[in-house]
Design a protein around this nucleic acid. Structure first.
Lengths: 183, 183
DNA sequence: ACCTGAACACCGTTCAAGT
DNA sequence: ACCTGAACACCGTTCAAGT
C-alpha cells in the first residue's frame, strides 16, 4: 500500500479518514463505519474502497503508534540492561493500551489474518529482541517464545481503567517479568 | 434469579433459550439475538425479557461450566500440593476456553458490570485459594493479587486454535506459574 | 480512477396487542 | 404474568451512476 500509488485526491481522502477515525474511535470504540464516513465527508463506498473492513481501519489508525513501539525496542536495549529495557518497554505498552481501547481484539485478529501479520510480527520480533538480550546476559531464562509473552502482555489492555489503572499494570508487568526471570 | 419464582412456561422458555443459545454460539459466536429467538421458537421480546443483553445470555450459557470450575478448586487443593493443584486447574481452564470462544470478552465485561460480579468474583476467589495455599506451603510467593492472575490467565482464551493449541496453553501456564514461584 | 449515496438485507431493541 | 411479532432506527456493505 505505497502512498504514492494513489491519486492525490484519493490520498487526501485516505489520510483524512484515518485522522477522523482516530478521534471517532477514541470518543466511542463502537462508532459505526457509516458515521466515520460521514464525519470524514466521504461516501460510504469510499471508506470501503480504502479499508475493506473495520479492523483494517483500526490497524491503519494504530499502525503509526505500533511502529513507534517497535522502533523503541532497539533504542532501549542500547541504553539499558535487557531486563530494565524490557520493563520500560512494557510500561510504554501499558500506557498505549490504556489510551487505546479495542486494540487487543485487533492484535488478536492479527494472528489469524494474513493481511495483519505486518503488524503482529514486528511486535513479536520487538519482544524477541529483549528475550535474546536477556538470555545472553543471563537475566532472563532461555527457551521462552516471544509470541507467548505478547499474548500474556495482552492482559495490559484489558485492565479496567476505573478499577486497576496504573498500579495494576505495574503488578502485571512484575508478574510477567518474574515468570521470565533467570532460574 | 431463583428459578422457582418463574411461571412454569416462562421457566421452560428460559431453559430452552439457554440450551439453544449454547449450540448457536458454538456454531457461530456472532449469531444474532433474533436468530437465537427464532431457533428457540420464541418472540424476540421474550428473549429480551429473560436476558437484557447479549452478554447476559452468554453468562447464562457459561455459568454452569464456570461454577464447575469454581467448585473444582477446593477439590484439587484437598488432593494435591498447591502448585500441582493450581496447574491442574489451569489446564482445565485452558480446555474450557478452547471450546468456548467469546468467554474472555464476557469475563472482562464482568469486571465493570455489577450484575456479572457473581460470575467474576467466584473465579477470583477460586484462584485466591490456590495462592493462599501456595503461600502457606512456601511453593508460591506472597503478595500476589488473584485478580491479576485471572487477567493474565485470560491469555489462555485468546490462543488461536489453528496456531498454538494445547502446546501454547501449556507454555503460557508455565510462564504464569513461574511468575508466581517462591523466590 | 475515484467518488457518491441510494438501496439491500440485515441488526438490536421496543411495545401495543394478545392469552 | 408472560408471550408475540410487527415496527423502529439503525447497521455493514454493495453498486449503478456520476466526475
Amino acid at each position: 500500500m505505497a502512498d504514492d500509488e494513489l491519486r492525490s485526491d484519493a490520498r487526501a481522502n485516505r489520510d483524512r479518514i484515518v485522522e477522523i477515525a482516530r478521534d471517532a474511535f477514541a470518543a466511542d470504540p463502537d462508532v459505526s463505519m457509516n458515521a466515520i464516513a460521514k464525519a470524514a465527508g466521504v461516501g460510504a463506498g469510499t471508506l470501503y474502497r480504502h479499508f475493506a473492513c473495520r479492523e483494517a481501519l483500526l490497524i491503519a489508525v494504530y499502525r503509526k503508534e505500533i511502529q513507534a513501539l517497535v522502533d523503541l525496542a532497539p533504542v532501549l536495549l542500547a541504553r539499558h540492561t535487557p531486563l530494565v529495557a524490557f520493563r520500560h518497554w512494557c510500561d510504554r505498552l501499558a500506557h498505549f493500551g490504556r489510551m487505546k481501547q479495542g486494540l487487543a481484539a485487533v492484535l488478536h485478529a492479527a494472528m489469524s489474518d494474513r493481511d495483519f501479520q505486518e503488524t503482529y510480527w514486528p511486535m513479536v520480533e520487538a519482544i524477541a529482541q529483549f528475550l535474546r538480550a536477556g538470555e545472553a546476559s543471563g537475566e532472563l531464562r532461555s527457551g521462552v517464545e516471544a509470541e507467548d509473552v505478547l499474548l500474556l502482555l495482552g492482559a495490559l489492555w484489558r485492565i479496567d481503567p476505573k478499577k486497576g489503572g496504573k498500579a495494576q499494570a505495574e503488578r502485571l508487568i512484575g508478574l510477567v517479568l518474574s515468570g521470565l526471570g533467570a532460574r
